[in-house]
Write a protein that binds this DNA or RNA. Sequence first.
DNA 1: TCTTTCATTTGTCCTGGACAAACTTGCGTG
DNA 2: CACGCAAGTTTGTCCAGGACAAATGAAAGA
Lengths: 310, 310
Amino acid sequence: MNDTSRTEAFLSIAAVERDTGLAKDTLRVWERRYGFPSPERDANGERLYPQEQVDKLRLIRRLLDHGQRPARIAGASMDELNALVGQLRCDSSSDPAQAERDAALLQYVRLHRSAELSSALRQALLKQGLQRFVIDTVAPLAEAVGEAWMRGEIDVPEEHLFTEQVQNVLRSANGAHAGTGGRPRVLLTTFPEEEHVLGLLMAEAMLVPEGVACLSLGARTPLADIRNAAVGGGFDIVGLSFSMAYPARQAVDGALELRAMLPEEITLWAGGGAVRDKQKRLPGVRVVCGLEDTLLALQEWRAANAVAAD
Amino acid sequence: MNDTSRTEAFLSIAAVERDTGLAKDTLRVWERRYGFPSPERDANGERLYPQEQVDKLRLIRRLLDHGQRPARIAGASMDELNALVGQLRCDSSSDPAQAERDAALLQYVRLHRSAELSSALRQALLKQGLQRFVIDTVAPLAEAVGEAWMRGEIDVPEEHLFTEQVQNVLRSANGAHAGTGGRPRVLLTTFPEEEHVLGLLMAEAMLVPEGVACLSLGARTPLADIRNAAVGGGFDIVGLSFSMAYPARQAVDGALELRAMLPEEITLWAGGGAVRDKQKRLPGVRVVCGLEDTLLALQEWRAANAVAAD
DNA sequence: TCTTTCATTTGTCCTGGACAAACTTGCGTG
DNA sequence: CACGCAAGTTTGTCCAGGACAAATGAAAGA
């Protein structure tokens, strides 16, 4: 995007792991098996990944998350990959008026118009109310930002700026409601490797207006600590958020492990991209498919615990 | 089905990496060099860490963050480790009335009284105003939490809870001011390895009431991106925050590198524990020693740029 | 007292082999 | 035809043990 952004066009394997979410071991074994990626080496024989290969890896990662398999796409060209990505994006259709608004907001993100972005967000919040704001504005925008990021159309600062502004707005709104005594009591957090916090804030924003007593621990809480906090704090529900980038396998394993650690009377919810369609592999866990399903899950809990509540 | 979760107190190496933050490679090499940890093996020769060793690793991790070295403490017993933690408490004394208030707040953090903590914070904010609130309440409390964390008196969830509540309050307050056209324009962020965000929020809270146009990019922004954002966004000042845990050397080197990348007319500020007393090693960088010094630095800038401003 | 030089510590990276879980495919049965 | 089960492939993670550079601490010099 700018001239200096390509001065250092080589990344170490650790940096690539950070940027793509692919483990070092995975990167090495792909190189061995598929011949891709094929990084340069420095004087000491350590891998140096050119930026273009990292971009390709990001694309591949995205396709993997959508069910493709490595052997098929590891050797594919950039064009073939883009064609596959194009196929994936067709199914996300919505009404055109909304798409136009989203595009305007996305433009604010791109151009560093932080003030405009902020006030546009606050305005939308006032107009739509918290829950619809999250569903109709924040979530689509987050997805648009994620896609633009994957396609390399926006850079780190833009993504950070977006996250910060949304956090400001949502935290203000959530704090304003601040119900103390409601039921159920919900504990929200993510696993240690998951640092994305927007999913938690959106979930909180869905629940707080329903009179739920929500407590978010933020991101990166170790499993044992989640359990201790849930039991010690007398919570009814533990809610986990997984971004699309989170390895599905780890999400499932971790959720099951936590389920086994928690006492039976505490309900476990899991939501976010990584656990979509994973309900059948998660017995005992309520997979929350999208933000609106949060309300359904809440209804279910209240129906099941109606007698015990009073 | 669920009784096994108690007896099965063994974690895989991946799970231990999650819970302790120590990389798999590090865990293996410690075992080789220091004989600790010494996990069991399963039928396939894979490591199985007993829960007690994981707990010990967590403690060791904390000591490492405060400057201890692995060779010294890897072989130590649990008692010796606890003794070391006791020694490390840096005795910071202040006036007793305030210490009492801090203690009360800290108690809220400890006991999972999130609602009380939240309302006590908001009350203090209203009473003191944003700037004094940050200086007299948030900063001392953050330090107290850090020390309690070191001594093992509080755990991950408590620390997370504290951070979340403070974020909620500060973000609401900062957002309410939301000056658009003020000068100078300040860009706040941290380096990629620094994930602590409270320092940024506190700095923003100090600046915003002074009519400064503050934009925080949050944590973990790569160097090149900071430069691009600062230049592209027309900022006057870039502010960096380093927690006490950040390696001082890395902070100095990084700040100097960024200084070299930035055009001369953009001022660079660096604040936080890692750069305290490092002014002499940072020519061209204004080291901000503590929150109150932020106001002084701002005055300096305004004095130096008074002519150019209008 | 402060900087510079040298020795030690320590985290990360390397290779190449192994294996179990997950997925695919093909087959036989209700 | 639907469906479950067995055999075959794919794929991510783990292991050992060697290597090295960055970080740190100690010693020497200005």
